[in-house]
């Protein structure tokens, strides 16, 4: 019995503290635009803009992120490329998003699609779909959008994926109120990725 307990304890330590290879998050495109037009604004006097059907959506390709493992050094000091690391090591990555400086009274949401993006390296044939991407459904609406908080301490999980992946499209939707100031403004979108050994 003591042996069983010891094995279980070691398993916990292994899961919790085993070394995860370092990687690099890439956020493509320095900025992206969210532009309202007459078709995506309220048309009935007396209603708020958030009541309108045509909320503002970005084009998915406008905002791409990726995460690949870094080059490293092997046991005998030999260099190991990012591609080799990504081929041999598969971790679970969870992507949390929050904003700073978002306009007042505007609801900002984000989503991606199942298995969107590109498995890295592309030469991997993932027949068993072991390197999947899964959008988070908790708190998502029927369209898959999840509200993004303007609060770093409450970054919202939007999706998770297994293994290295690039060019993951993230689509944003903004529902502004008429109380949201008109004209041009900008805010920052933060992507935080955590890694877990599978």
């Amino acid at each position: 019995m003591k042996k069983i307990l010891l094995i279980a304890l070691l398993l916990c330590f292994q899961i919790g503290f085993a070394q995860v290879l370092n990687g690099t998050l890439t956020v493509n495109n320095g900025s992206f635009n969210i532009t309202q037009d007459a078709f995506s604004s309220v048309t009935e006097a007396g209603l708020d803009d958030t009541d309108s059907e045509g909320r503002i959506e970005t084009i998915p390709q406008d905002n791409l992120i990726g995460f690949v493992l870094n080059d490293s050094t092997g046991v005998l000091g030999a260099p190991v490329t990012s591609e080799q690391n990504c081929t041999s090591a598969v971790y679970l990555y969870q992507v949390y998003i929050h904003t700073t400086g978002a306009p007042v009274n505007a609801v900002i949401e984000a989503r991606t699609q199942t298995d969107s993006g590109v498995v890295y390296p592309p030469s991997i044939v993932d027949i068993l779909n072991l390197r999947s991407l899964t959008p988070n459904t908790v708190g998502a609406d029927a369209d898959g959008y999840i509200p993004i908080p303007n609060n770093a301490s409450q970054a919202q999980k939007v999706f998770e994926f297994r293994g290295c992946r690039t060019d993951i499209p993230i689509q944003f939707r903004v529902s502004p109120s008429v109380l949201t100031p008109g004209g041009n403004s900008s805010f920052q979108v933060f992507y935080t990725i955590t890694a877990t050994i599978l």
Binding site: F32, N184, S186, V189
Partner: peptide
Amino acid sequence: GNNQANLT
């Protein structure tokens, strides 16, 4: 990482 969203 982060990027900037421009809202109009």
